[in-house]
Each structure stands twice: as structure tokens, then as C-alpha cells.
Design a protein around this nucleic acid. Structure first.
Lengths: 110, 110
DNA sequence: CCAGCTATTAGACATTGTATAAAAACAATG
DNA sequence: CATTGTTTTTATACAATGTCTAATAGCTGG
């Protein structure tokens, strides 16, 4: 199996940031809702899960299960790991550096 | 053939931003150099070309050829199209919105 | 016309993005 | 206690991106 990349993919960033925004861990539906809420982007829930699982394999997040409150299956709570924070930080710096250019500053319409 | 996605991929953003920074179009080697210069990221030149070509297919950039100055083959000069600027804008807004959270502002342990 | 440059294109293959369908697991019900 | 209803997670699958190592293509000067 291949190795992970040095930088987060576009959607990985979205999912990881949404999880980070939750503050203290979160599970599928919460993360999905956070993405929709913060960005208006309506992606399928499994898309979120599969990305989470891949990021876990890379050590960017970790997870544990929790008994469900009402009915339904057990929850899988995800948390951002230090490696994940670092990746986020790198991505941020990357784009901040790239956007910092005289040719890109003035917000012009189309 | 598949359709394009709604958001730019991670590397597409990098390449498109590097091209935009050049101000008035640029070709392979220049874009490659700009990426290295602005971000320290040393990717292969073909990686840049293939991404450029895919973005051209999607209408994000356009290209024309120019006679070479010294020796060597003709250059292919790329320019950011309106559609490309819009995509860049969308990506920027997406991440600005996601990063705007109380949980993400303070610098945490690295 | 052949060697030597500078640039671009061809493939190839692993990783990501993203959806549809299927399965789990617990609670209430009769 | 089997059946159904909820809520949530996993399995799969496949298209799009990321990224590399060759292979070409065109000039120019001997």
C-alpha cells in the first residue's frame, strides 16, 4: 500500500478543519453538519467517514467508540491528533504564502 | 470522461496560484520555479504540466505557444482564465470560512 | 546532419474524492 | 423474544488528482 502525501488533500482539509472546529471531538453526523453549516457544502456522510478512516490510518486523527444515547448504533468519536494539527498548520502556511502576492491582493470582480 | 469537481484539488490550487503570481502568464519552468520559490516545495516539472493540461481542459487556464529565445523547443505559455480566478476565489473563501473559528485561532502546542 | 540544449508530452500508477447500497446495533412493542 | 424502527457506521466501487520516470520534440552551433 502506498504512502501518504506530504500535504492534505482538499477534502481532507475540509473534514479535518470541521472536526477541529467542533472543539472536543465529534462523530460522523456532527462533522457532516459542521461542514454544511460552515461552508454550505452538502457532501454525503460516507464521504466524510471514508476520509476520516484514511486520516486515522495516517495518524492525523484517532477514534474511540461511545455508547449511543437514544436508539441506534454506537458512535465513533474522532479527535484531531498532534500530527493532524501540524498538517493543518502546514496547509495553512502554504496557502498564506501563495496568496501573499501583489497580483492577488485587490479583490476584483470577474 | 468524468466531469470536473466543484473545488480545486490541493495541487491544482498551488499551480494555479503560482501562475497567477507570475502576473502575465508563464510557462512550465517558470511556474515550477515559482512554486519552489514561494513554497519551498520541489515537485517534478511534469507534475506541473499535467496539472496545467487538465486545468486547461476544464477551462481554468488557456495556453498559446511562443517561439523560444535561445535554443530549445517552443514554449507553451499559460494564462489564468476568468473561470480559474473564480475557482481560486471559491477555494479561498472556503478555507477562510473554515479557519474562522475560536478553536483554531490560538497557536497551540506544535 | 549530429550533438547538445531547453521544453514539453506520454504513460503509468498510487492516493483522494465522493456516491450508492448494505449492515450493525440498540430500543421499544406487542 | 422476534419484529420493526431509528440512528449510525462500514463496504464497495469508480472517477479525478497527485506525481514520477521515461520518451519526444525543436532549435542552434559546429
Amino acid at each position: 500500500m502506498g504512502d501518504a502525501r506530504e500535504y492534505l488533500g482538499e477534502f481532507e482539509q475540509v473534514v479535518l478543519l470541521a472536526l477541529a472546529r467542533l472543539g472536543d471531538g465529534g462523530y460522523g453526523a456532527e462533522i457532516h453538519a459542521e461542514i454544511l453549516d460552515a461552508t454550505g457544502r452538502d457532501v454525503s456522510i460516507p464521504a466524510v467517514y471514508v476520509t476520516l478512516k484514511r486520516m486515522e490510518r495516517k495518524g492525523l486523527v484517532s477514534s474511540r467508540t461511545r455508547r449511543p444515547t437514544g436508539g441506534g448504533r454506537a458512535l465513533r468519536i474522532y479527535t484531531v491528533e498532534a500530527e493532524g494539527s501540524r498538517a493543518l498548520q502546514r496547509s495553512r502556511e502554504l496557502f498564506e504564502r501563495l496568496w501573499d502576492s501583489p497580483h492577488l491582493d485587490p479583490g476584483q470582480a470577474s
